[in-house]
Simulated assay, not measured.
Amino acid sequence: MAGLEGMGQPRGHGRATAARWSPAVEDERALRALDLFGNPAEAEVPLPSRPESAATARRLAQVVVLRQWGLTPKLTEDAVLLVSELVGNAVRHTGARVFGLRLRRRRGWIRVEIRDPSRGLPCLMPVQELDISGRGLFLVDTLSDRWGVDLLPRGKTTWFEMRVADR
């Protein structure tokens, strides 16, 4: 999909590009993602089921949670991490071509939803200290206040919620 062009590291730049990371550059990329894909706080944003979409979803979540909603950096960091985990699961396990990202806020809570066309349910597995994978739902379970799955006629929505202090 052409919309993802330039959202990750440019081809062939590897470590040289990573060395130039800065908050300002990341902020610029986040705002660009918002322009390209839309605001997931206003409507579900469809993203291609590709590994690089995790970075796009993280950037969109960061723009909404930190800038638009003005929530704390710690809450933003946790929410962005959990978005990445749920997107990774959607990309790896659903066989979907596209998934949807939606962020909602109501008094005292934020809710992040990932919708995909698979009706396969995610499974929280026990995690061992030396495990190198399988920690995604463990992190969601640990860092969110609640999470779950809503089955839909065609697919499911996996979601998590976090308590927030209202101003």
Rank of each mutant, 00 (worst) to 15 (best):
A2V: 11
A2I: 14
G3W: 12
M7L: 09
G12E: 01
A16D: 08
T17R: 14
A19L: 14
A19F: 15
R20Y: 05
W21V: 10
P23V: 07
P23N: 04
A24D: 15
E28M: 15
L34P: 02
L34T: 08
D35K: 15
F37R: 03
A41D: 06
A41R: 05
E42G: 05
E44M: 14
P46T: 05
P48K: 04
S53P: 02
Q62R: 15
V63D: 00
V63A: 13
G70E: 12
T72A: 10
T72D: 08
P73L: 08
E77F: 12
L81C: 11
E85D: 11
G88S: 12
N89P: 09
A90N: 03
A96E: 11
A96L: 09
R97A: 13
G100F: 09
R106M: 05
R107D: 10
R107S: 11
G108C: 07
G108V: 05
W109N: 03
V112F: 01
R115C: 07
E129T: 15
D131P: 09
G136N: 11
L137A: 08
F138K: 11
L143C: 05
S144W: 00
S144A: 07
D145Y: 01
P153S: 10
P153A: 11
R154W: 05
G155S: 04
T158I: 10
T158V: 10
W159I: 05
F160P: 04
F160I: 04
F160E: 03
F160V: 07
M162N: 01
R167L: 13
